[in-house]
Nucleic acid binder design. Sequence first.
DNA 1: TCTGGGGTCCTAGGACCC
DNA 2: TCTGGGGTCCTAGGACCC
Length: 421
Amino acid sequence: MYALIDCNNFYVSCERVFQPHLQDKAGVVLSNNDGCAIARSQEAKDLGIKMGHPYFQLKDTHPHVWVRSSNYALYQDMMYRVTSIIRNYFPDQEIYSIDECFCDLRGFTVIDPLSLAAELRSEILNCTGIPVCIGVARTKTLAKIANRIAKKKYKDVGVFVLQSQEQEAKALEATEIGDVWGIGGRHAARLRAMGIDNAGKFARLPPDWVLKNMTIVGLRMWRELNGESCIPMEYVRKAKKGIGTSRSFGKPESRLAVLLEALATYVSLASAKLRSQNSVCGRVYVYARTSDFVGEAERFACGFEVRLITPTANTGELIKVAGWILKKTFRDGYRYQKVGVLLSDIRPDTEVQQSLFDRSVKRRVRMASAFRAMDSINARNGRDTVRVAASGNEGKWTMKQDFRSKRYTTKLSEIITVKAI
DNA sequence: TCTGGGGTCCTAGGACCC
DNA sequence: TCTGGGGTCCTAGGACCC
């Protein structure tokens, strides 16, 4: 059996832990740049606020709903607390996303998974203040379904176990096709048009059809729904194959010099991530674009990719290349909404093929140790303690974050204050 | 005025190799 | 009449996840 532990309205729940007055009141957490709602309290959902609902509309239509900007430092750390507790119960965990964790129950002689899951759930709530739901079933995909049922149908208990095949069959019949893990909008629409509107009907389709029309990925899902486990647990986080960094500007920006500063900042971030997994990249893609929501004539997107002669993780080199691309591709006269960089062709830094024509090898080695030193200073003293000058001074282009709560758990100066009366 | 950011995997088709 | 067989690598596009 597999368990899926999923935090309820996670970002909203994190905000409520340290701001208890937000409890029981409709509220949302906004995306970066305070763009749109990406987490909603149950009360907000009940008001009909949708995922991705733009904030500039919400503030007029729902002025009484509380809002917070995304505070990822807080959410990441809260999830760390949650997974630490889970680990005491089930040591084999796969942290699937910022708010979900799979556990492998095979090898456990769990007599009563339901009461064990219930115990874990209340332990997490007591220790962290985060409510979770737990679904248990024979495969990961079925555990996802069990979790959904726990959330929708057994909210008070928060736990649901698919024990028997009869229960599985009933659960599949009750699961809308679009709610199956791995079926997105495209496939859902297509299947619905064929009359396949729930997971049970999908699981009874001939496997040949599924393979032909939905690739091996679809077939894997089909098998999982039929009780055959074929999505393995991933205990160690794999090295990333691509690292992308981009942000929307607080307001549209037309000046190349400002775009270059923003880009240098994103390249610094991305290359630090690259070094943290001991990798180098062989390709750099840079792009800039205007908003999707402006008229045809003002809309513009540009960018291209270059292949590096020698793969690198050196911030300075990468900024130089990225800046060169942006200057080449940039066109005057547009109001840009964002720039971004994508590092790809990623490989271990121990497997770098040197170029015969590269005369700066020694300098490279020196720079590599300089950036290692920078990373460790920033790790010890906080992000951006040392940064590259090309990033410029903040303020000109940074994203909107008008409603961010404090970093209660990761920054000493923002720790919660308790007053004794 | 105003609409996020970060990833993964699969397939088909083209170019190339012997 | 009739033109092989076995590969690799790369790219773009599609679909999906949170």
